[in-house]
Design a protein around this nucleic acid. Structure first.
Lengths: 114, 114, 114, 114
DNA sequence: TTTT
DNA sequence: TTTT
């Protein structure tokens, strides 16, 4: 888990309530979407915004923190690594997804942003 | 282009010769796949390796540097941001891709790693 | 200004009001101290905190943003690079200082954290 | 050890052989200086270089890796955190130093850069 | 010198 | 004190 070789950091707002899955092993997995917003002025000097949506996955203890503290609209910081995987959807079509596997999730702008 | 809000860094090896596209505007776009390798020992103490593949896109001047210096097998460092977009493939299926839009590409382990 | 070769990121609280210097050239320089706090449990299971203090320097436009928005106690994110320099103090003793030269300063936990 | 709150990354060349200290506890500490070089053209279009020197400290297992593999002139990548501390020098003058406490040290441009 |  |  080298942070030199594969490192992602995002600061943004949570799109929806995280989904929590309890694995048979007793481990938890949390998954949520995160919007990163950039504000800039376009050619005409008008204020514009771009939003990028990211899928964040958290395992184990980080999933538990997610379940407790991360909610829709909250501002969070995430560090982790980029992982890609493929699966077959219900129509038998091979799909590729890229997710951010979180090492750390930090609540920002809150009293308990510890 | 906030590096606090959306920042990716990768160090790895280039999978294939980059593809270069010359846009009508005269601008260049370079695209290549990058493998990040992690080495670790598994439960049984055996040396194991995980490889993650990433798609890197470079525009303008960074594309030109890519065209000149980046080649199959080379060790490179990349920083940039995560961008997701969708398109329809030839069968009319909506596809989602996540790419790293490079700000900077650094050649490592070379005499011209400037 | 390679973010691969020399990159620092901090999220913390501002210790004091920034000092602003107006250079003869008309350019501004802002300087402030930033505390990064880590919370953990010690050997005895007691909650403990470590604080590291950093000196952040901002030039030009980033200095102007600092002057307007950064104040004592505020939570801010900073990215930039590590710079070291030496000077002689009033007693003629050579001093070395390490500062973070900010590329970007982001206000966190605020409505205008854009 | 939050990489969101306090994170440094450097890629550069080692200035001298690392110094290794064996603590009474049996733990090792390694310390070395690292040069990060930036190349750019100045106002007159001449190629110029700036070098920043950093002090890297590694503890425990990372110190052992440093002892084995890190040597003068080698190209290495380092991630870690910024730590400042003070001490009294031999003349009783209080000195402040800022060091990078390494989490990870990666040998670049070598066959064993794993 | 901040914050929790 | 490194490197290109």
């Amino acid at each position: 888990m080298s942070t030199l070789k594969n490192h992602v950091q995002l600061i943004g707002n949570v799109g929806q309530e995280p989904t929590i899955t309890n694995l048979e092993s007793g481990k938890k997995v949390a998954r949520f979407s995160l919007a990163t917003n950039e504000y800039y002025k376009n050619d005409k000097g008008e204020k514009t915004q771009t939003t990028d949506w990211h899928t964040v996955v958290a395992w184990g203890k980080t999933a538990e923190i997610t379940e407790k503290y991360v909610g829709k609209g909250k501002e969070v910081g995430v560090t982790g690594k980029l992982k890609s995987r493929s699966y077959e959807d219900n129509d038998g079509i091979k799909r590729y997804v890229t997710e951010i596997e979180a090492n750390e999730i930090l609540l920002l702008g809150t009293k308990n942003g510890k």
